[in-house]
Design a protein around this nucleic acid. Structure first.
Length: 562
RNA sequence: GGGCCCGUGGCUUAGCAUGGAUAGAGCGACGGCCUUCUAAGCCGUAGAUCGCGGGUUCAAAUCCCGCCGGGUCCGCCA
């Protein structure tokens, strides 16, 4: 199965190759471009000019003269050394609308690949509520998962639960030893106070530090009773985190506890295997791998696998986890903060040395506050729950302003809020650092989720009123109609591209462009009651489908009214 | 000291992988548009040495080298 735009592109490429062969007798690599306003496709003749010793202008003219109108190619022009192609809009409209009509929610999907991919994201220590500094993780992870599913992969998402590290142990110690009364409906917010106080005491009091260290040691030795006790506490915090995620439309398929890899002996096996390698060394009883031969330079290039007492370290357990994961999937994708780069590099090196599958990693920069990096320990944070709550509050005001209070108020406000937050994170490339500002994070206008949701709601409203039944003979002439058709046709291309590059921000941008093109159409072309009502309704419906599919991938509710 | 990432109008950002035709948006500012399908919208104006300096090329925001500024890491933490 091919999408219409794809067919056009193939026809143009084939036509070019043929023409060049015929004219100059050479097999040229055809690199085709998609200039926005100028043409639908363009072929620059500059590289050929060098080989042929002819001006690009002349070459373009010769080639353009050679390429005939075909099924998809409506017009070919030579301009400034480019061969410009124009698509047969009538044909495009016919084929595209038919395809969208048939496929509906499936439109834009790529063929099934029969490859299982595990997307690991969030994996935050369950010692307190999620904060905005890490909010990119679940949003990027969930969007990537949805995107890959749409792109034909079988996707499972995993949250790796660090149930035996310092953070959870500190939390546990705090809950057991401190008396703090705090009111909050969510457990993660109640418990984080114990964690904060305990961390503070740990810095001040050597005995507290020792007690916490003892808890960690017990866990790492596989003491099941201690692990169980910790679990009873952290599980409540984790439930709070899960609830926060659910408010952003994020569900995680599997939770994998770190301790299982200690308990089942796989961590020990990893250490034994790695110890045998020539890169391994010992310092006292602690084992390390020297990273210098792998191109890692710095003050200290030793990466430790075990402590002096033989217990394992986080990265070592992470290796065991990845071996386990790799046995259960064809591909692994991890979403990690940029602070994990070195650790991830180490895990990668270790996995390669052990001849195991290596994960792809998507790194993101932190969301910081104007006063600096967020920190749960220091209490310098904006919690995700507070952001969501504020977003809903603001959305509610907007909804009331527009449509008054009705039974749909909460539903709309909640989804506008969640959408706005998700969109604002995903529209920016993951590597870019973000400084958190309330008004930017909660923008409901311009390039934002509500803008796109609004266009979708407008589509739905028109279709509702007109009673669309799905029959149409497309014949579009208005510039805004044509622009919109072409925009919709690009959807599968955008999916292909963003799946390939694992870059959902491209899709976010595209969804905005579709909504924007629709608004122009809405402005210029009356639908209901016009002579062209039927075919315009078909276009509105096609727009609705594309917007909905975009929004679904972005994890944003496609509201039907707002 | 070293590694990696970021640097595009006042602010936020797309484009950078695979170099091409006038650098595309949004916010904010200013001025307009609700008697017709939802004004969370639309139209217009102003605003850009694409961090700086070299280089490669017919062509550089995009590739290479150097520098500057910011982030991040270099722990027997996670």
């Amino acid at each position: 199965m091919k999408y219409p735009y794809e067919e056009f592109k193939e026809e143009a490429t084939a036509g070019l190759a043929e023409a060049i062969k015929k004219l100059y007798g050479i097999e040229a690599e055809i690199k085709i471009e998609e200039p926005k306003e100028i043409a639908d496709l363009a072929y620059p003749c500059f590289p050929l000019s060098k080989i042929l010793k002819k001006s690009p202008k002349e070459i373009a003219e010769e080639i353009a003269g050679e390429i005939k109108r075909r099924e998809w190619i409506d017009k070919v022009e030579a301009v400034n050394g480019y061969v410009n192609f124009f698509i047969n809009v009538k044909k495009l409209a016919e084929k595209l609308l038919k395809k969208i009509e048939e496929m509906g929610d499936e439109f834009g999907k790529l063929p099934r690949k029969n490859l299982k991919v595990i997307v690991e994201h969030t994996s935050a220590n369950p010692n307190g509520p999620l904060h905005v500094g890490r909010a990119r993780n679940p949003i990027i992870g969930d969007t990537i998962a949805r995107l890959l599913k749409f792109g034909g992969y079988d996707v499972v998402t995993q949250y790796y639960v660090d149930d035996m590290g310092k953070q959870v142990a500190t939390l546990f110690w705090g809950v057991k030893n401190l008396k703090i009364e705090i009111e909050h409906e969510k457990a993660d917010h109640r418990y984080v106070v114990f964690y904060q106080k305990a961390s503070q005491l740990m810095d001040e009091d050597e005995n507290v530090k020792k007690e916490i260290e003892e808890i960690i040691k017990k866990c790492e030795r596989g003491d099941e009773k201690t692990l169980q006790e910790l679990k009873e506490i952290y599980e409540k915090v984790l439930d709070g985190i899960i609830e926060s995620l659910r408010n952003l439309n994020i569900e995680i398929d599997e939770f994998v506890e770190e301790s299982r890899f200690v308990l089942d002996g796989s961590v020990e096996k990893v250490v034994k295997e790695l110890e045998k390698l020539p890169y391994a060394g010992k310092e006292g009883k602690a084992t390390y791998i020297d990273l210098e031969p792998f191109g890692v330079h710095g003050r200290d290039k030793k990466f430790y696998l075990t402590r002096g007492d033989g217990t394992s370290l986080y990265a070592t357990r992470d290796i065991a986890y990845h071996i386990w994961k790799g046995e259960r999937a064809d591909m692994m994708i991890n979403v990690l903060g940029e602070d994990h780069k070195l650790e991830a590099k180490f895990v990668e090196i270790a996995l390669k040395l052990l001849n195991k599958k290596v994960p792809e990693v998507i790194f993101y920069s932190f969301v910081s506050l104007p006063e600096g990096k967020m920190s749960t320990r220091k209490g310098r944070v904006v919690y995700l729950d507070d952001l969501i709550e504020e977003a809903i509050e603001r959305a509610r005001k907007e909804v009331i302003k527009r449509r008054g209070e009705d039974e749909k108020l909460e539903y709309i406000a909640k989804n506008v809020a969640a959408g706005a937050i998700r969109y604002n994170i995903i529209k920016v490339r993951a590597e870019k650092p973000i400084v958190f500002k309330w008004d930017e994070a909660l923008n409901f206008e311009g390039q934002s989720a509500p803008f796109i949701q609004y266009a979708h709601a407008r589509c739905c409203s028109i279709l509702r009123k007109a009673g669309y039944e799905g029959e149409a003979k497309p014949n579009y002439e208005h510039e805004s109609e044509i622009k919109l058709i072409k925009m919709l046709a690009l959807f599968p291309e955008i999916i292909k591209e963003s799946v390939k590059t694992r870059n959902p921000s491209m899709l976010a941008e595209y969804a905005y462009d579709v909504a924007s093109s629709f608004n122009a159409f809405y402005r210029d072309c009356r639908v209901i009651g016009s002579e062209k009502e039927k075919e315009r309704l078909a276009l509105v419906n096609a727009t609705r489908v594309v917007l909905k599919n975009c929004l679904n991938i972005l994890g944003i509710e496609a509201l039907e009214e707002m």
